[in-house]
Design a protein around this nucleic acid. Sequence first.
DNA 1: GCTATAATTGAAAATGCTTTTCAATTACTG
DNA 2: CAGTAATTGAAAAGCATTTTCAATTATAGC
Lengths: 151, 151
Amino acid sequence: MAQAHISSEKEIKERTGGWLARLAEQGYRITGSRRAVVDVLAEAGTSLSPAEIYEQGRVAHKQLGLVTVYRTLEKLEELGLVQRVHRPDGCHAYIPALHGHEHLLLCQECGRVEYFRGDDLSELSRRLEGESGYTINDHWLQFFGVCAACQ
Amino acid sequence: MAQAHISSEKEIKERTGGWLARLAEQGYRITGSRRAVVDVLAEAGTSLSPAEIYEQGRVAHKQLGLVTVYRTLEKLEELGLVQRVHRPDGCHAYIPALHGHEHLLLCQECGRVEYFRGDDLSELSRRLEGESGYTINDHWLQFFGVCAACQ
DNA sequence: GCTATAATTGAAAATGCTTTTCAATTACTG
DNA sequence: CAGTAATTGAAAAGCATTTTCAATTATAGC
Ligand SMILES: [Mn+2]
Ligand SMILES: [Mn+2]
Ligand SMILES: [Zn+2]
Ligand SMILES: [Zn+2]
């Protein structure tokens, strides 16, 4: 079932706090730069490229460097807090990973993202393992289209 | 059902001829450089990056330029003859598009590709359209793992 | 076949995204 | 309130991809 990803103020605040806590837990220091990246991404309803995160992050933290955006994204991705989106053109973007691995529906016009579940690929995955001899580690499922607002 | 993509000599020859014919049909000229790219890719059992195609293509056609590899891939992709593979690291690779759009199982070690069908996403796609209000144009499904030979 | 012409080519330069380097700064520990 | 290692951002380097452009070449029409 497709579920809108629009989050309330409270949810965003909790998410931001949670991400910072996870970073601290791992021994990473909480800095203004990291906070800026986390703030931008934790409330994102569309996928954002590193450059977009940089641009938005600088509003709150003017000395933010693009390098630090990349370094912070790397850590957030490792911790499973954000998820990388692959765009057809090849450019990468990031979104919050709300509930672990999820499948995505992306608007090609505005970048809006819907997360969905309700489709179980584990059975297919197991069947493929049996038939192909592969050991399967991971998968991606992404749908592309145009959202209601953009039509 | 997973199906090995290993092709016979005859199938490869037919595929090569078919691709060149499609290019000619579109008004594109058949040159040594294009032939070299087509030859490499039409018999590929693993996904190949532009640089790999360039390297292999130069064996048969030494003056081949990397620029022409990119330009030829662009045309083959437009015609639906090759399909782009999205790797987790972000680097792109190409494989023959044997039967139109297919879903893929990729070996993370050697790049080997299995094509599979037997999983129908059109029902899911329609349901998502209804629930989200999006118009869906396209989707990707890729599994990642380690092939039998690489284990 | 030969010619005219537009398509194609590859080297080089430009571009854009991402990573590395490094000296200065800063968050945290004790 | 140090002391110390982590972090930062500017600049440079590294890659993948695209653009530019003058030279070459495939092909249609004779
Ligand atoms: Mn990609
Ligand atoms: Mn899944
Ligand atoms: Zn949209
Ligand atoms: Zn393999």
